[in-house]
Design a protein around this nucleic acid. Structure first.
Lengths: 278, 278
DNA sequence: CCAGGGCGTTCCGCCCGCCGAAACGGACGG
DNA sequence: CCGTCCGTTTCGGCGGGCGGAACGCCCTGG
């Protein structure tokens, strides 16, 4: 019941963010919009400066200006802010995309992803995507490092779920065995029962000074790029662990130097003055 | 010549990002759109999940989902990434908005701003806004810390400018005196000749290990909140200096652990595989 | 208690601007 | 040289966006 053209344009802009470069044909396939409609929407976004049509690369991509469509939102937890730079640095160095996820009730939500930074990434950016707790690397790396009480609580919630992604919650001994294994190894990988099969993710917990798991950070790679999963694990799990502990240290420094309360603050209503910072 | 409703909606979304909370009346005043049109656009964005209508606070605001409209773009230089967390932490603690700016030829461009995080901020967010080099705190804190060669080069460019913001470049002795003063103090403030008059900004350079100025970070406050500018300077300049050096250290750690090249990487064309990271 | 103003929101008929099938033209590749 | 697959342009028809007017609400002040 909204404005159709606006809904469509927002979808297109959203889709444009999922891949570094987008052809009309791809967008047509994904959005099911007629090509002339796509061209018209893209032209509009281009005139507004949010999109550019790079003919050399043969496709459309978002420009730096899109950041101004979300510059008003950074109430994210500090762990994501502190982790961003490390995620980006990891991707620049090792090419594979890195994601940071936060717990959300009975699942995890991806809050940052370097997919567009990754020149070899065939993956979609998954910011704001929800992931299962018991099948995804980013979920397992979280739940396995919860303390007993929080773990039992979450498992209790998951047992009520009918989602096949949460099936493991109905097999306590199997689950416990997996959790122990993850805790000992210090990292988790995605369940092999779950799509996509041609890639894998290695994830580790980001643990605060006090011992609480705050978030998880994970790296995704194409299986075909390595002779075995073990090879990728040997290579990346130490890097992720050291990044995770560095993030935790950064958080410590940020809060000790400035004494932040971790909970986001509520913005208050302010009057409209037409001035600017500089 | 684009789709009018889409152009309007993008403008509205952009405006929504400039303030933590937006009433219809404010948006009407800023966009000059009829109120029914605004309501229709906002309803559309709300249905799509990008905006919420917080009736308690009596206004519209962007939601976390807007990040997915720019998640495809993160080519930001590492110094901005490293500085984000510090800017946010400063604002959470001291309430005033903090901005990070990068040099761009003969001016500075704001690349990050915590205006929407600041509950007392009556300022507009200025991400992507261009600032003069010789009047703005964020510009002065940069140019004053350039080495001789780069300084002369930039001043040469500025002398060709007719912009009143660059007028100081035509008065070398005055300029030199100001530069010396800034270098000694370690911070810069906005020229009193320039709008807005009811606020001021204190900015310091972010200097890399090698001695190069990479960027500047500045805090803006309402003059009426302090008994004198000196009081604000005494309070904030040490904080900014310590944040700037912490950012520089973070950069060092990021690059030494991972050996990053500072220049952004160019994303390559990749084939369309329908998979995802997790 | 009511008048007045400002607010966000709803209504509804007019009309214009969006829509998309069809056509175009250029780039491959066989 | 023709077939195919692109991205892009054209253009007429019509449906959906538009905004003035009106509504209901909450203030404030008389």
């Amino acid at each position: 019941m909204g404005i159709r053209s606006v809904e469509r344009a927002m979808n297109v802009l959203h889709e444009l963010n999922l891949q570094p470069i987008n052809t009309i044909a791809q967008l047509h396939a994904r959005t099911r919009l007629p090509k002339p409609t796509l061209v018209r929407i893209l032209k509009t976004l281009e005139e507004a400066g949010y999109v550019e049509n790079d003919t050399r690369q043969g496709g459309y991509q978002v420009t730096a200006l899109v950041t101004s469509l979300s510059s008003g939102f950074h109430k994210g937890p500090m762990v994501v802010e502190a982790g961003r730079a490390w995620a980006i640095a990891l991707t620049r160095k090792h090419k594979w995309p890195v994601a940071i996820a936060l717990p959300d009730y009975d699942g995890m939500i991806v809050r940052f992803s370097t997919v567009p930074d990754s020149p070899i990434s065939p993956f979609h950016s998954t910011v704001n995507r929800r992931l299962g707790m018991l099948t995804r690397a980013l979920g397992l790396a979280y739940i396995a490092f919860l303390d007993r009480e929080a773990f039992d609580l979450t498992m209790g919630i998951l047992r009520k779920s009918q989602d096949p992604e949460d099936a493991l919650s109905h097999h306590p001994t199997e689950a416990d065995r997996l959790m122990t294994q993850i805790r000992e190894a210090g990292y988790a990988t995605r369940s092999s029962l779950v799509e996509p099969r041609n890639s894998n993710t290695i994830a580790v917990p980001i643990i605060a000074k006090g011992g609480n798991v705050l978030a998880t950070i994970g790296l995704t790679y194409f299986k075909s790029a390595f002779s075995s999963d073990q090879q990728a694990i040997d290579r990346f799990s130490p890097l992720l662990k050291s990044a995770a502990s560095a993030i935790s240290e950064d958080l410590e420094r940020l809060s000790s130097k400035l004494a932040i309360e971790e909970s986001g603050l509520r913005p208050n209503h302010v009057q409209d003055l037409r001035t600017s910072d500089c």
